[in-house]
């Protein structure tokens, strides 16, 4: 009896292997139970990377290592009239709001931000697609801003809101729209010394294709975490309430929230 079932097991295994080869396996992707099992790898990766390198610094390069052309990806020029108006005025009235679970909410002008002590770092930007480029970034550390605002005890995540209707759909109303680009990190990456709010790139004010006037640099994670066209920093206890609740525009579309790999 056990012999028969072993043979059955064999033919079942053979059929499964054959199915795989014929790409009949796309259905696996839609299986909710499998999706949860497969998705468990993300938490394992995050825990592992925090275990071996919680305080590790991303490699920093020399000026001579800069990419001749730093590829711009995603939105390269937000079409919204409000953004275009800001761009036309040289972002003179741009403001960055720091709100949420903070004791002192703030609204900073670009001039305020440029006056803050800044960190300059030459780092490699790794796109999820596979290409990479080296650029120089300057701006205050996010940790500095968060300390000034003062975190309340239940703060767990920092959400970056952007003036970028990346999905292109009609605005359904502020940060609730699933079409607006946004991103988020936990407090470990928020307070990492290389996590900065960059206002300059390669020694000049940030250009529009790279997120003018402000973008995030989250150096130990992939490019989609580095939100461009930054208008707001929200300190929150939960990521629910933004987009579809997964913590970022691309996360809402199936990408990992922890993008350290």
């Amino acid at each position: 009896m056990s012999l028969i079932s072993r043979r059955r097991l064999f033919s079942a295994g053979g059929a499964a292997a054959g199915g795989l080869l014929l790409s009949g396996c796309d259905g696996l992707v839609r299986d909710e139970k499998l999706k949860r099992i497969i998705g468990s790898a993300e938490a394992a990766t995050q825990r592992w990377q925090r275990l071996v390198g919680r305080d590790g610094l991303a490699q920093e390069f020399a000026l001579s290592d800069l990419s001749p052309v730093f590829k711009a990806n995603g939105t390269q020029n937000p079409r919204e009239a409000e953004y275009q108006a800001h761009a036309a005025r040289g972002f003179a009235d741009w403001r960055l709001a720091i709100t949420g679970l903070v004791t002192t909410p703030m609204s900073l002008s670009l001039a305020d931000i440029r006056r803050l002590p800044a960190r300059t770092q030459i780092t490699r930007h790794d796109c999820v697609e596979g290409w990479s480029a080296i650029g120089q970034w300057t701006g205050p550390q996010l940790g500095l801003l968060l300390k000034a605002a003062g975190l309340k005890p239940d703060a767990r995540y920092v959400v970056f809101r952007c003036a970028d209707n990346y999905g292109g759909e009609v605005d359904k109303g502020g940060s609730q729209s699933t079409s607006i680009y946004y991103e988020s990190v936990d407090l470990v990456d928020a307070f990492h010394p290389q996590t900065i709010v960059a206002h300059s790139m390669n020694g000049a004010p940030l250009g529009v294709p790279h997120g003018a006037p402000l973008r995030m640099r989250i150096e130990r994670q992939l490019g989609y975490k580095h939100a461009k066209y930054l208008v707001g920093i929200d300190v929150v206890a939960s990521l629910a309430g933004y987009g579809r609740g997964k913590g970022g525009y691309w996360e809402d579309r199936g990408y990992e929230w922890y993008a350290g790999i």
Binding site: G39, G254, E256
Partner: peptide, 16 residues
Amino acid sequence: FPSYRDLGTARNWHFF
């Protein structure tokens, strides 16, 4: 895998 272009899903499965 999958047989169509889907970077997000391919990455989820690759790392698992």
